[in-house]
């Protein structure tokens, strides 16, 4: 398969970027999208050009590092998968593919397709954890948790913090990420204790870092590689508002 790639190239955070066109040839349909970029980079290195910088790590859909906006979609055209789980057979032979970095004021471009997502780390550091001493691992059923609660918690915990939600949201809102973190802990007895403090602290940090206001479009849910539901945003709203009214 042959493809025309329009890729955002930007030397560093301060430089002005632009799209550059590349052509890749004889790509196997079973090549993953990131492997296709590896092949392109190999060609660029051989040609003495600067390879395209892009984030990646596990390439198994669990680390959340890959963060490409492909043909208008965060993580590409397939729903419920990360960029590394996209294969070239999902594109048409001869297709032009536009590859962009996340676009959000809170995720500044570092180089080419790599953005700085440390804002999410800062939100987590504000309260996305349990601070009680838990000692060694308890017996599996020592603390009874209903199946429904455990399922909801695990669904929210599937969030890999890739940033697709804020990058997709027309408001640059990080609500789905914050909601997933708050919700996954709020549904468990260990996390319930600090629920109010956590919701207030994480929302305050999110606002401080300049993320936008959620307007419930649901775009984040549609583009999330882990299909996190906006029902978790409703729970975050409940947690935050009840905490505020209790103050």
């Amino acid at each position: 398969m042959n493809f025309t790639l329009k890729i955002w190239r930007q030397k560093d955070a301060k430089s002005k970027g632009a799209f550059k066109e590349y052509h890749v040839k004889d790509i196997s349909p079973d090549t993953s999208f990131l492997e296709m970029l590896d092949i392109l980079n190999n060609d660029l290195v051989h040609a003495g050009e600067e390879p395209v910088a892009f984030d990646h790590d596990c390439r198994e859909g669990i680390c959340g590092m890959c963060s490409l906006h492909i043909n208008g979609h965060a993580h590409g055209p397939e729903q419920g998968v990360t960029t590394c789980q996209i294969y070239m057979r999902q594109f048409k032979d001869g297709q032009t593919i536009v590859v962009e970095p996340w676009r959000s004021a809170a995720f500044p471009v570092i180089k080419d397709l790599v953005v700085n997502r440390s804002a999410y780390d800062q939100i987590l550091q504000a309260g996305g954890y349990i601070s009680v001493r838990t000692n060694s691992v308890p017996d599996g059923n020592a603390i009874p948790i209903s199946k429904a609660d455990a399922d909801e918690s695990m669904d929210a915990a599937a969030c890999v913090g890739c940033g697709a939600c804020a990058a997709t949201c027309k408001n640059g809102s990080a609500m789905l990420f914050v909601a997933a973190r708050v919700s996954s802990l709020a549904k468990l007895p260990q996390g319930r204790v600090e629920g109010a403090r956590r919701a207030k602290a994480m929302v305050a940090k999110m606002d401080e870092l300049g993320f936008g206001n959620c307007t419930n479009t649901g775009a984040c849910q549609a583009e999330c590689p882990k299909s996190i539901s906006i029902a978790h945003i409703a729970r975050l709203n409940r947690e935050f508002l009840s905490a505020k009214f209790e103050d």
Binding site: G72, E100, S104, A219, Q221
Partner: peptide
């Protein structure tokens, strides 16, 4: 929200699945 979105916009934009026109 416009400030949070940043000055550089996507080259390619689509309507995400299940997203109503009115909501945007």
């Amino acid at each position: 929200n416009r400030r949070a979105r940043g000055n550089v916009r996507y080259e390619v934009t689509v309507t995400e699945k299940g997203v109503d026109w009115a909501s945007k």
